[in-house]
Design a protein around this nucleic acid. Sequence first.
DNA 1: CGGTAATTTGCAATCGGGTTGCAATTGCGG
DNA 2: CCGCAATTGCAACCCGATTGCAAATTACCG
Lengths: 119, 119
Amino acid sequence: MLVLEAMERFEHTFSLSDLETEADTLDKSSIFRSLTLFAEHHLLHVIEDGSGATKYCLCHNDHACRIEELHCHFHCEVCGKTFCLDDVHIPVIHYPAGYEVREINYLVKGRCPDCRSKR
Amino acid sequence: MLVLEAMERFEHTFSLSDLETEADTLDKSSIFRSLTLFAEHHLLHVIEDGSGATKYCLCHNDHACRIEELHCHFHCEVCGKTFCLDDVHIPVIHYPAGYEVREINYLVKGRCPDCRSKR
DNA sequence: CGGTAATTTGCAATCGGGTTGCAATTGCGG
DNA sequence: CCGCAATTGCAACCCGATTGCAAATTACCG
């Protein structure tokens, strides 16, 4: 419950260590186990943005986890933040036969509006 | 040069530790530094497939690094291999204004043909 | 060639995120 | 209040990535 509350205080995505500082009465391992649990039950998106730390964010719509409705994520290389681009849906693509698709990650990297406006 | 030769012996993608065993006269750090160098000069794709280890593969066409022509990668959750789906091009998408796109990663996970045919 | 500077290498150490074993604590039904 | 199950904290560990540094190699200039 504490982990959930801490998660809800984040506007965008967050990492395990973000949660550690946000919910500082809890131990890293407890938070980790909660995250794992939530992710298994599809309450969380798990995002690998190549920053080294896995990012998470709360699923705000029920069907966000079905493949057809996956949206993409944007990782800012300047400030390191990662955003859910909720409105950008991943187009369906024709894959070579033989591959069984279970999950799609669409990650865009670059500079976010904030970092572009500064300098 | 030794690193380059070792890389060319891989059919698909490879990790740092793959190269370590392939080019066993070289130290991990030397290989790492070469990879970094190659990547900076866009001779390599760098692929994060969520397996924990960064994967690489040689760029086989000159323009593979321009955004419009990026292809996607497939990570098999059974055998752990990662493939370049050279023929699947990432479609151009309309992004929200304000984001500056520098790089796109399109990663599909699932089961590869090999692992599907076995059992 | 010789000699010095620049580069590259190997080794070991370190970092950091993730993960786990285990003992201590807490929750809860009876 | 007792006892069992679930949760938690702590510390240790794993593993890939990364770096500092000294030694070895290479490049280059006279």
